[in-house]
Design a protein around this nucleic acid. Structure first.
Lengths: 105, 105
DNA sequence: CGTGCATATAAGAATTTTCTTATACATATA
DNA sequence: TATATGTATAAGAAAATTCTTATATGCACG
């Protein structure tokens, strides 16, 4: 069950991950300052489960990541997140190349 | 009833417009060659109403546009579309700037 | 007059996404 | 022992998106 690296599918998933106001605000706030989910939820004004859900989606698409941090007394327990350094350029030419590339194979 | 130019809202709408496989394929196919909705629907393998619906959304967001063409005998009747020359760069820094800019005002 | 091409829209169904609420666990502090 | 901080997940409700089907119009061709 390979994920069959389809350029179109991957692009759609990435766009979907970015097509939500809460998820965009998560990226923006983590860019301002890396923090953990609980603090982020409060800053966003949403429940922790909702923030966690959205962060899970962003992490899955590689748009944010857990960063190493100071563990106090051996236990991690607090996970700090930051955006990854992605750069996606969207233009009709790019979309053409990504979407119609594998049809020629 | 101004649309209140909210950077976040606009970005979400643009991302939503691009977060669909049919809409991305429309942009890709129109980039290869401008054409009209009916021909596009056939090439996509979807019904005309569905193609029309998706094109309407892309046009609304300014991602595709109707281009001028040879009108035979005064009547347009056939509308040819092409992608506009948008270029959207997505990075955490960009998202930060767009999303958190107006909060300082 | 029927068929193919071409446009546009609306209503309702089907599907997906989003959100809330509940549960569970662990640590620290008042 | 409550309360606050912190993590994680699942079930179901609510909302939004997507898709089909039907309707309507017009031109050209056989």
């Amino acid at each position: 069950m390979e994920p069959t690296d389809d350029g179109l599918q991957t692009l759609v998933k990435t766009m979907k991950a970015l097509a939500n106001p809460i998820r965009l605000r998560i990226i923006a706030l983590l860019e301002k300052e890396p923090k953990h989910a609980y603090a982020l939820a409060k800053e966003l004004g949403v429940s922790y489960p909702l923030a966690h859900l959205h962060m899970k989606g962003l992490k899955k698409m590689g748009l944010i990541e857990e960063i190493e941090q100071q563990e106090r007394e051996g236990l991690p327990s607090v996970k700090t997140y930051a955006p990854t350094d992605f750069e996606i350029v969207l233009s009709s030419k790019m979309i053409h190349d990504i979407v119609l590339k594998e049809e020629e194979e």
